[in-house]
Amino acid sequence: MSTEVLPIFRRSIGDSWRSLLGWSLGVAAALFLYLPLFPSIGGNGEMQQIIDSMPPELTKTLGYEQIASGPGYTQGTFFGLLGFLLLVIAATSWGSGAIAGAEESGKLELTLAHGVGRAQYAIESALSVLVRLAWLGLLAALIVLALNESAELHIEPANIFATSAALVGVAFLAGATALLVGAATGRRVLGTAAGAGIAVLGYVFNAIANQVSDAEWLRAISPYSWAYREQPLTEGADWGGLTLLWGLALVFVIGATLVLRHRDITG
C-alpha cells in the first residue's frame, strides 16, 4: 500500500505552480497599481467629484458609492472588481480542469486505473483548488495590509482578512460549481460555463439590486452579495454570508464526489 499522503493533491499543485505564480503576479500587480493611488485621487475629494458627475446607475453597478473612503476604494477597485475577476477566472479554470479537463486529456483514465478512488480524486482535486485560492486570498490580504498605512486606507486589519475570506469563498464557490458540472458531464467547457455563470449572475443580480429597490430580493440568491453586502472591509466579518458561500461550495464538492463515483469515465 502507498504510504504517501494526498498524491493527487500534490501532483496537482506540482503541475500548476507556474500558473499559480502567474495568478499571484496578477493579484499583486492589481493591488500595487490601484492602492497607492488612493491618497492622490480618492482621499482629496477630487475623486468624489468625478464620481458625483458620473451617472448614478454606473457608480452603483461598479459599487463606487463609497469610493472616497479607504475601505470603499479598496472594495470598489480590488475586492469587488479586479480581485473578484481574477480569482473567479482562476477558480473556474482550475475547477473545470481538475476532473473534466483531466478526463478530456485522457489523464483521468490512467490515474483512476491505479490505486485511487473516485471520491479520493474529487476531494483531493477540490482541496488543490481551495489551497491555491486561499494562497491568492492570503497574498492579497497581506499586500493590502502592507499598503494600508502608506496608501492611507485606514482599514481595520482584521477586516482585511474577513473580506479576503469572502473573496476566496465566492471564488471557491465558482470553482466548486465548475468542478461539480465537470464531474457530472466530463466536459470542460460546460464546467467553465457553469463556474463563470454563477459568478457573473451573482454580480449582475447584485448590481440590479443596487439600483432597483424592488429587486432587493435578488441579493438573497447572489453569491456576490453574500460576500460583500455587509461591507466587511468596514463592518468586519459577515458570518451569515460566509456560511452561505462556504456551505454551498462544500455541498457542491460533495456533489462532485458523488456524481463522479456513479458514472463512466470517457475521454
Binding site: 486529456s105 485522457g106 490512467l110 486505473a113
Partner: peptide
Amino acid sequence: GPALRRRIGFVPGELRLE
C-alpha cells in the same frame, strides 16, 4: 476498488501524456 487496481498494471488504448 483501489486495492484491487494496485494489483493490476494497465496501458490504456489511447495513451495521451502531456
